[in-house]
Design a protein around this nucleic acid. Sequence first.
DNA 1: CTTTTAACACCTAGGTGTAAAATT
DNA 2: AATTTTACACCTAGGTGTTAAAAG
Lengths: 215, 215
Amino acid sequence: CARRRMFPSVRVKVKGLEPLQQYYIAIDVVPVDSKRYRYVYHSSQWMVAGNTDHSCITPRLYIHPDSPCSGETWMRQIISFDRVKLTNNEMDDKGHIILQSMHKYKPRVHVIAQDSRFDLAQIQSLPAEGVQTFSFQETEFTTVTAYQNQQITKLKIDRNPFAKGFRDPGRNRGVLDGLLETYPWRAPLALDFKAFGADSQGGSSSSSPVASSGG
Amino acid sequence: CARRRMFPSVRVKVKGLEPLQQYYIAIDVVPVDSKRYRYVYHSSQWMVAGNTDHSCITPRLYIHPDSPCSGETWMRQIISFDRVKLTNNEMDDKGHIILQSMHKYKPRVHVIAQDSRFDLAQIQSLPAEGVQTFSFQETEFTTVTAYQNQQITKLKIDRNPFAKGFRDPGRNRGVLDGLLETYPWRAPLALDFKAFGADSQGGSSSSSPVASSGG
DNA sequence: CTTTTAACACCTAGGTGTAAAATT
DNA sequence: AATTTTACACCTAGGTGTTAAAAG
């Protein structure tokens, strides 16, 4: 019940795949550090407020629903993880990604070559080989259960279609375009999110996905 | 745009599968004959109104979204095909099942053992081996674009949650329970549907799925 | 005090039969 | 005349931030 979608969602382009090879593409979310954070209003920033032990917790894998799919098909489209759900319930049995509130995290995207030894139903953890993993600095975020920052609230309301009911008609449109600062971000849990709406163009090397985030 | 869900949906139980083997389960819809039908109001029945050529049309396969999945998991649950969509648009490019209006059809359920030689993305037609196919007399139906029979309209309104807005509160509840007669059934396209709500208990032989239909 | 939960109004997204219009 | 299409009001189903209450 305390689960919400991650928003903005992670969106990725991949290239350099074998066109006819089958791949799974998956996402997980790993801790950036072992610190607990609190938001300091008067300085408008997150500050360390203690330590946590993230060890012995294997992050849950969210398999993209189009998996498995050929490299050709994956490369032809933007791969959007807009249905990923986050929860702070450690007993969650619906397969959602489990995070602790007030901590910093970073999503990782995994490109997994199909192998007859495993199947979609079995993938609970990453195989030992045939996996390429990518992550992007600009998708780092901080989890919350209630927004700490009015600017991120405004960003969510302006950008998330499901929050349309809270929009102030005719005002403050597009003021967050091109924003490059740090905002907490709720999903349910809110994210310290950089470079909203800005594409991060990767190099042209083989198998380098290019990520962009946005609603 | 002229696509609708099949309702009531086909619901199936399977037994006799290998618990650890992976299976796809799929449904398709095949013609019962090559006749075109019209509904004769005064005698309340469908009558032959001409011939059609169904040859050279390979029926589309709808893969159950839980596929692939272990035999153990498939046997533990009722397998519901409630998201199957039918269309009369022969140019449909969304993968929906294509039927002609005013014809008789019968759904078939296919249990397909996983094989490293094919993948979910590739399955457009049935493999040559490792497939068991089942169909049930009571799920035969006739397609329409507009209902021909008030009784089936009432059945739909009473049973389909999405038609709740048309229910006549406090009246005519449950009158169709246990009905064993023939009714046209729309999906978008309406179905000559027998034994609504009645389970058709199969034998106890190995790998014999037991089907029940209902909303 | 800080943080989390639960109920809520308000949205998106999409599945119903209806009735009028369009097509054949 | 028979059949199909389209726009529509009315639902289900579920994703928002808000707010007050609960929990720590």
